[in-house]
C-alpha cells in the first residue's frame, strides 16, 4: 500500500530546499567570496601606515560592512530570480503538478536561500576570523621583538590590548544579526516577487525598501516628537507602518566599537527578525496561493 499523502511534509520542504541550494551553487553564487577575500587581504596589507589599533578597527569595519552588503545582495538577488526562473524553466509546473502544496514550495525555496545565506556568512566569518588571527599574531610578534627589554607587566599589557582589538567573541552576535537582516530581506523579496511582473521590478523595489527601511526610526521619532501638518503625519504613519525598521539590525558598527550585545537584547533583536520573516512569508503565501501561473 503506498504511503498516505500528507498535507504538510517537512521531507518535501527539505527536498525543495536542497534542490534550491544545489541550483544556487551551480549558479556559482559563492564566487563573491573571492571578492570578500580580496577586500580582507587588501585591508590587512595596505593599511600598514596606520597604527595597529586603527588597522584592526578598519579591518573589522570593512569586513563586517562587506559581510552585510554581500549577504543582503545575495538574499535579494537569489530570491528575486527564484520564481521567474522556475516559471521560465517550467520547473514550477512540474513541481506543482505533483501533490505539493504551494506553501511547501514557497517554504522550500525560502529555506534553500536561507541555507545558502548561512553557508556564505559562515565562510565569510571564518575567513574574517582567520585573517584577524594572522594579523594579531604578526602584530604580537613585532611588539614582542620591540619590547625585549621591557618589564613583563608591560609586555602582558601590550599583548592584552592587541588581543582585545582583534577578534573577540562579542563580534559573533553582531554577525548573527547580519544573518537575520538578510533573512528578513529574503522573505520580503519573496513577497514582492509573488506579485511582481519581472525580477528587475522585484530588485528595484527591494533596494528601495532597503533605503527607506533605514529611515524608519527617523520618521518614527519625527512622528512621535514633533507637531507637523496632517499630511506629513499621515505620510510618516504610512511609512513607519509599511516598512521594516532596518536600523534595529545595524548593530555591528557599535559592536566593533566595543559595545557588548547582552544575550537578552540579542534574542529580542533576533526574535524581531524572525517575526518579520514569519509575517512576510505568510503574506507571500497569501499572494502565491491563488496566483495564476
Amino acid at each position: 500500500m503506498p504511503p498516505r499523502h500528507r498535507f504538510f511534509s517537512p521531507g518535501r520542504i527539505g527536498a525543495i530546499a536542497g534542490n534550491t541550494l544545489l541550483e544556487l551553487v551551480r549558479q556559482k553564487v559563492f564566487y563573491f567570496l573571492l571578492i570578500f577575500a580580496l577586500a580582507l587581504i587588501g585591508c590587512s596589507f595596505f593599511m600598514g601606515f596606520l597604527r595597529p589599533e586603527l588597522q584592526f578597527q578598519v579591518m573589522k569595519d570593512v569586513s563586517l560592512g562587506a559581510m552585510s552588503v554581500f549577504t543582503w545582495l545575495l538574499a535579494v538577488l537569489a530570491t528575486a530570480m527564484m520564481l521567474p526562473k522556475d516559471i521560465e524553466d517550467r520547473t514550477l509546473y512540474t513541481i506543482l503538478a505533483k501533490p505539493v502544496p504551494r506553501l511547501e514550495y514557497l517554504l522550500g525555496k525560502l529555506l534553500g536561500v536561507l541555507f545558502m545565506l548561512a553557508i556564505s556568512l559562515g565562510v565569510m566569518a571564518v575567513l574574517f576570523a582567520a585573517t584577524l588571527y594572522i594579523k594579531e599574531q604578526t602584530t604580537i610578534a613585532a611588539a614582542l621583538g620591540e619590547l625585549r627589554q621591557a618589564p613583563p607587566e608591560q609586555v602582558a599589557e601590550v599583548v592584552r590590548n592587541v588581543k582585545a582589538a582583534t577578534f573577540t567573541w562579542s563580534l559573533v552576535p553582531g554577525i548573527a544579526i547580519i544573518y537575520f537582516k538578510a533573512a528578513l530581506f529574503a522573505s520580503l523579496t519573496l513577497l514582492i516577487s509573488t506579485f511582481a511582473s519581472s525580477w528587475i521590478f522585484t530588485i528595484v523595489i527591494s533596494v528601495a525598501v532597503y533605503l527607506i527601511g533605514h529611515l524608519v526610526p527617523i520618521a518614527r521619532t519625527y512622528l512621535l516628537e514633533t507637531d507637523g501638518s496632517w499630511i506629513s503625519k499621515a505620510f510618516l504613519t504610512l511609512l513607519t507602518l509599511m516598512f521594516p525598521d532596518l536600523q534595529l539590525f545595524n548593530l555591528t558598527d557599535d559592536i566593533v566599537a566595543g559595545n557588548a550585545l547582552p544575550p537578552g537584547l540579542f534574542f529580542q533583536t533576533a526574535g524581531m527578525g524572525c517575526f518579520y520573516l514569519a509575517i512576510y512569508t505568510c503574506l507571500a503565501y497569501l499572494m502565491f496561493s491563488k496566483k495564476e501561473l
Binding site: 513577497l191 506579485f195 524608519v216 526610526p217 518614527r220 512621535l224 504610512l238 513607519t240 507602518l241 509599511m242 521594516p244 525598521d245 536600523q247 534595529l248 545595524n250 548593530l251 557599535d254 559595545n259 557588548a260 550585545l261 547582552p262 537584547l265 529580542q268 533583536t269 524581531m272 517575526f275 518579520y276 509575517i279 503574506l283 497569501l286 499572494m287
Partner: peptide
C-alpha cells in the same frame, strides 16, 4: 495583503519603538 501589512505595522510599531529604546540604553544607535 496591503491591509494586512498595515495591520502588522500597527502591531510592530510599539515593538520597534521599545526595542530601539532598549538598544539605546545599551549604548547602541
Amino acid at each position: 495583503v496591503l491591509a494586512l501589512l498595515l495591520l502588522f505595522g500597527a502591531v510592530k510599531f510599539p515593538m520597534e519603538e521599545a526595542l530601539t529604546r532598549t538598544h539605546r540604553t545599551a549604548y547602541f544607535h
